[in-house]
Simulated assay, not measured.
Amino acid sequence: MNPTLLLAVASLSLATPATSAFAAQNARIVAENGQASPTAAAPTLGYADTVGRVLQSTLIVDATIRSAVRIKGAEAATVPTNRARFYVEADVVALIRGPSAVAPRLGWLADVPLDARGKAPKLQKMRVIAFGRTVANRADQIQLVTPESQIAWNSGDEAQIRRVVRDVLAPDAPPAITGVGNAFHVPGTLPGEGETQVFLQTASGDPVSLLVLRRPGEQRRWAVALGEIVDEAAGPPPRDTLLWYRLACGLPRTLPASAVANEEPARAALATEDYAFVVSALGRCGSGA
């Protein structure tokens, strides 16, 4: 059996000293600013797609493919016509997410896209990032979280993935949204003035709420609170952050009628309008957002 290779989650690389120095500098910039350095390529994965795969993965590796064997017949019967299935063995370059120890060479099944002529890419020696889960009793095997969760390595993707991993594992990471609790609207003293508050349900039970402010002569404003106290000055979360993802991808598109069941019809209508305003401002989850 291959000896176990110990890898540092944030910084281990098998590159040359000069490359390692650049990688360390880039990692420092990413850690400090939460974004890729100016020299990083643009990510090929959208932010929401990256978060979705990170959340499903217990192991994410940067690896170089040593061998790839195409799988045909019954074992590839479910593969789309524009893809081909391969059994891949790859040498681990760096561990992006996972336990402190991982086998130096891993194998997995991957469905890779064909080119315009229907030809499969040359995978040998390709540097890739794989999102996977460990396989019981097989330290040298992983299962990709989806058949397409092997992507060509890209400095922008790596930086974004590392940022998402750090945000997901942070002690103060925003919880997953599982539904909407109660919502109510309180009119102000002036015509057109009022506030809507929406209490959200979360997987952890931690409180999350939305506040929408209406002021005469002003555009509606909204804020999100992670806690019991709502700070209207906090504002909405920036796009492509974990809190934005939790809301954009976790909130139902319309306010459930049960959330305003105890409200007067006029106030319920305003609360519903304000909720729709928040959902519209967030945009859709995923690459089509």
Rank of each mutant, 00 (worst) to 15 (best):
residue 2 N to D: 15
residue 3 P to E: 07
residue 4 T to D: 14
residue 5 L to H: 08
residue 6 L to C: 08
residue 8 A to H: 10
residue 11 S to D: 11
residue 14 L to T: 13
residue 14 L to C: 05
residue 15 A to N: 10
residue 16 T to Y: 04
residue 17 P to C: 05
residue 19 T to S: 14
residue 19 T to W: 09
residue 19 T to H: 11
residue 21 A to I: 05
residue 26 N to S: 12
residue 30 V to W: 04
residue 31 A to D: 14
residue 31 A to I: 01
residue 36 A to E: 13
residue 36 A to F: 03
residue 37 S to T: 13
residue 41 A to R: 03
residue 41 A to E: 03
residue 44 T to I: 04
residue 45 L to F: 01
residue 47 Y to E: 11
residue 47 Y to I: 05
residue 49 D to T: 05
residue 50 T to C: 15
residue 50 T to I: 07
residue 52 G to I: 02
residue 52 G to Y: 06
residue 57 S to I: 02
residue 59 L to I: 14
residue 60 I to D: 02
residue 62 D to M: 02
residue 66 R to T: 11
residue 68 A to C: 10
residue 68 A to N: 07
residue 70 R to Y: 01
residue 72 K to T: 15
residue 74 A to T: 12
residue 78 T to C: 07
residue 78 T to N: 14
residue 78 T to Q: 13
residue 78 T to W: 08
residue 79 V to P: 10
residue 84 A to S: 15
residue 85 R to I: 06
residue 85 R to M: 12
residue 90 A to Q: 09
residue 92 V to Y: 03
residue 93 V to A: 15
residue 93 V to W: 05
residue 95 L to M: 13
residue 96 I to G: 02
residue 96 I to S: 01
residue 100 S to P: 00
residue 100 S to F: 09
residue 101 A to E: 15
residue 104 P to L: 14
residue 105 R to F: 01
residue 107 G to F: 00
residue 112 V to M: 00
residue 114 L to E: 13
residue 115 D to I: 14
residue 116 A to C: 01
residue 117 R to G: 06
residue 117 R to H: 13
residue 117 R to M: 08
residue 118 G to T: 07
residue 119 K to I: 03
residue 120 A to Y: 04
residue 122 K to W: 03
residue 124 Q to G: 05
residue 126 M to I: 02
residue 129 I to N: 00
residue 132 G to L: 08
residue 136 A to W: 11
residue 138 R to W: 04
residue 142 I to W: 00
residue 142 I to K: 01
residue 149 S to K: 08
residue 154 N to S: 11
residue 157 D to V: 02
residue 159 A to N: 08
residue 160 Q to T: 06
residue 164 V to N: 05
residue 164 V to R: 06
residue 165 V to M: 07
residue 169 L to A: 14
residue 171 P to K: 01
residue 173 A to Q: 06
residue 176 A to Q: 10
residue 177 I to Q: 01
residue 181 G to W: 09
residue 181 G to Y: 07
residue 181 G to S: 05
residue 182 N to K: 12
residue 183 A to V: 00
residue 184 F to L: 11
residue 185 H to Q: 05
residue 185 H to R: 03
residue 186 V to D: 10
residue 187 P to D: 04
residue 188 G to P: 02
residue 194 G to Q: 11
residue 195 E to K: 09
residue 196 T to R: 00
residue 199 F to T: 03
residue 201 Q to T: 13
residue 202 T to Y: 12
residue 204 S to V: 09
residue 206 D to F: 02
residue 206 D to H: 06
residue 208 V to I: 11
residue 215 R to Y: 00
residue 215 R to L: 11
residue 218 E to Y: 09
residue 220 R to H: 05
residue 220 R to S: 14
residue 221 R to K: 14
residue 222 W to L: 02
residue 222 W to N: 03
residue 222 W to K: 02
residue 225 A to G: 00
residue 225 A to C: 00
residue 226 L to Y: 03
residue 227 G to K: 07
residue 228 E to F: 06
residue 229 I to Q: 13
residue 231 D to A: 02
residue 234 A to E: 13
residue 234 A to Y: 07
residue 240 D to V: 01
residue 246 R to E: 12
residue 247 L to T: 04
residue 249 C to G: 08
residue 252 P to F: 06
residue 257 A to L: 05
residue 258 S to R: 12
residue 260 V to C: 06
residue 260 V to I: 14
residue 264 E to D: 11
residue 264 E to V: 08
residue 266 A to L: 12
residue 267 R to Y: 10
residue 271 A to R: 07
residue 272 T to R: 12
residue 273 E to L: 04
residue 275 Y to W: 07
residue 276 A to I: 07
residue 279 V to S: 00
residue 279 V to I: 10
residue 283 G to M: 10
residue 285 C to M: 10
residue 287 S to V: 10
residue 289 A to G: 15
